[in-house]
């Protein structure tokens, strides 16, 4: 399985990374060698093996439906790169 530059471009778009041409070239090469290394796990037969998404055998961790304090809006917006009328401002969507 070889990763092409086109694959890299697709993955970069999914990841929202505006890679430069140089980066695309470099990542194509590197990703191939890394993925080759990852492919080692395909030597193993995992037929019937349950996947481990969580290492801890714990279930049903929940909280009660109680309302607490929200953050002051000043604090909410403190780190905003751009804000207006108590909201986060973003450039045009389309």
């Amino acid at each position: 399985m070889r990763i092409t530059k086109k694959d890299v471009e697709h993955v970069a778009l999914l990841s929202r990374l505006d890679l430069t041409e140089e980066e695309k070239e470099a990542y194509t090469k590197q990703l191939n060698s890394i993925i080759d290394y990852m492919n080692k796990i395909n030597e193993l037969d995992t037929e019937g093996v349950e996947p481990t998404a969580h290492v801890l055998p714990i279930y049903n961790v929940m909280r009660e439906d109680e309302v607490g304090e929200s953050l002051d809006r000043e604090k909410v917006l403190e780190n905003a790169p751009e804000k207006e009328n108590g909201q986060f401002k973003v450039p045009r969507i389309v």
């Binding site: 990841s15 929202r16 990374l17 505006d18 890679l19 780190n79 905003a80 790169p81 986060f88 450039p91």
Partner: peptide
Amino acid sequence: GVRYGYRDKDAKNVLEMFMKTRN
């Protein structure tokens, strides 16, 4: 780049802002 941290300020639209900010 929407809520905190670095943002590319020259982006013309949201997709471009995401792509450039993150890159």
